[in-house]
């Protein structure tokens, strides 16, 4: 028997923080998805703001391509502050 489509729920726990993935709900439309997310994921004051997005609208990277996708960043060590060895007197820089 028919069930509603799936939505992903993102919640901002309090001001100053990013929205974080909390889980999913089934809902007939965006408005109801927000209501369902509220009733499901903020029963214990877990949030001050909710985003919902249709699960089918999320575009995800392919783990089979992990190598090409992420490994090239591994060798760019000059992007990290620890790469630069400075004299002790100015090392707090």
């Amino acid at each position: 028997m028919y069930d509603w489509p799936l939505w992903e729920v993102f919640i901002r726990a309090r001001g100053g923080l990013d929205h974080r993935h909390a889980g999913s709900v089934h809902a007939p439309d965006a408005h109801m998805a927000l209501r369902h997310a509220r009733d499901t994921y903020t029963r214990r004051l877990e949030g001050v703001s909710i985003w919902v997005v249709r699960s089918s609208d999320i575009v995800a990277s392919d783990p089979a391509q992990d190598g090409a996708m992420f490994e090239p960043a591994a060798s760019k060590i000059y992007r990290h502050p620890t790469f630069y060895v400075l004299p002790e007197a100015v090392d707090h820089m």
Partner: peptide, 11 residues
């Protein structure tokens, strides 16, 4: 009618 509605009515 669905679990989501169940939780809503309980609230």
């Amino acid at each position: 009618p669905t679990i989501e509605v169940d939780l809503g009515l309980s609230n």
